[in-house]
Amino acid sequence: MKKTILLTAFAVLGLISCNNEGTAVNTVSSMKTPQMENFDKAFKSLGEPQNRPTEEERKRNTSELSDRRKALLVPASKELILSTGVTESELMRKTGGDMSQIIVWATQIYMKKSEDIRKNIKAEN
């Protein structure tokens, strides 16, 4: 009888522990802003068959994205940058409309916001 109660107690503790881990993961996802989610989706879309590098783009053998693939990221990148309070004119002034600079700036913002979310979650636990 004692073994059954003890085994049940450990099983319940294990389930509660796993449930708490799932809650923390869900919290990270739920703390992302819609702009961060769109930025995530834009990057994930690069892996879709129609957005993968073409044969010609692969032949260039460069680590930089092609203009075609950059264009897929720019709208979500601009949206993320503008969500921080930067104006469209300031965005254009700082980047000169260069797609690479816009994507890099948005990536920096995304990484900072992600780090802030992780810090907040650690502080809560």
Rank of each mutant, 00 (worst) to 15 (best):
M1D: 02
T4G: 02
T8R: 00
A11C: 04
V12T: 14
G14H: 04
L15Q: 04
L15C: 14
I16V: 15
C18W: 15
N19A: 15
E21G: 03
G22L: 13
T23K: 11
T23R: 11
V25L: 13
N26F: 07
N26A: 04
T27G: 02
V28Y: 15
V28S: 03
V28F: 14
S30D: 12
M31L: 10
K32R: 13
T33W: 09
E37R: 06
N38W: 09
F39E: 00
D40Y: 10
F43R: 06
K44E: 14
K44W: 11
K44L: 14
S45H: 06
L46I: 02
G47K: 13
G47W: 06
G47Y: 13
G47T: 09
P49Y: 00
N51M: 01
N51T: 08
R52I: 04
R52Y: 01
P53R: 09
T54F: 10
E57Y: 08
K59I: 12
R60V: 13
R60Y: 06
N61R: 12
N61G: 05
T62W: 07
T62F: 09
T62P: 00
S63L: 05
S63R: 10
S66I: 09
D67P: 05
R68G: 05
R69L: 07
K70G: 07
A71L: 03
L73V: 12
V74F: 08
V74D: 05
S77H: 06
S77C: 05
L80P: 04
L80Y: 11
L82K: 03
S83D: 14
T84W: 04
V86E: 11
E90T: 10
E90V: 06
L91D: 03
M92V: 04
R93Q: 11
T95M: 01
Q101W: 02
I103E: 03
V104H: 05
A106E: 02
A106S: 08
I109V: 15
Y110C: 02
Y110S: 00
M111I: 12
K112P: 03
K113Q: 13
D116F: 08
D116I: 11
I117T: 10
K119N: 11
K119P: 00
K119G: 02
N120M: 13
I121G: 07
E124P: 00
